[in-house]
Design a protein around this nucleic acid. Sequence first.
DNA 1: TCAACGGTCACGGTGCGTAAGGGTAT
DNA 2: CATACCCTTACGCACCGTGACCGTTG
Lengths: 154, 154
Amino acid sequence: MVRSRSAAALKPQDAYLQIGEVAERTGVTQRTLRFYEEKELLKPPTEIEGGFRLYSEEDIRRVEHIKQLQKLLGFTLADIKEMVEAEEMQEQLRAEDRAEADPEERRRRIARARELTERQHAVIRQKVDGLLEMKSRLEEKLQDYRAWLRELDA
Amino acid sequence: MVRSRSAAALKPQDAYLQIGEVAERTGVTQRTLRFYEEKELLKPPTEIEGGFRLYSEEDIRRVEHIKQLQKLLGFTLADIKEMVEAEEMQEQLRAEDRAEADPEERRRRIARARELTERQHAVIRQKVDGLLEMKSRLEEKLQDYRAWLRELDA
DNA sequence: TCAACGGTCACGGTGCGTAAGGGTAT
DNA sequence: CATACCCTTACGCACCGTGACCGTTG
């Protein structure tokens, strides 16, 4: 077992995964993972010992999220990168100690995060609207077909 | 005025458009229109005199439809070709004299068209579901931001 | 003659696939 | 030593166009 070496050495809990496992679990290839890293969609995960990439569960969620955005929105990786970066910023915001920060600074950040989220929301709403329209057109068609088939039965 | 030559010669009503006008009206380039034709997404429109392409309003609708499918679904042109072909078959079905055809043959065609439509419907439903989920996640976020901002006001 | 249109041949970006050549641990 | 992981480098490819360039037409 190769993978018990550095991961175990670093974290006995076996919290880190090698690229092969991540690939398997997320359904993408190792090549894709390295490619995403190259494009800075994934930050170079904590690499340790012999230059092996070691991923966290968080990294896995991120990969899954990227794939979802790709499938659902049909965006380019560049677009997705922007979205993901925005989301990351927001998580930072969420995580930081609320009382500690300068209120004015904090307000600006929240406002910025909100803007980004609102833009994403608008994009998605547009897509959903278009798709819902297509969907109902298809449903009408299906109605027609069913009616015609009944007609033929008579 | 180039376009008065063959279009007018063929159809005094000026029902046909040259590629340049189609490009302008649909927002794609001439090159893209030729490319679509090459990929058999657009049937070679009735070409006349010197090999000039002449397009109908129907062709324009088709181009717009293709662009919509691309934007909304993020499909490849190959996928879109399939969909468009299916739709075309269905229009044929719709147009043909219902009484005239052999009932058994007609039933088979309708059943086939219905299957295709149902597959498309399923695909779209999936997308819509995924997008709606993303949408509500974003809405939750927006709620949070608004709450935080109110919190800062207090 | 010039602008607008037509055609063809390539080149370019994206998102990976796929080998080549080579490490290190069991 | 074989095997099973991993690494980088780099060329290749399908898809979706975009340009460059040249001929024809009014």
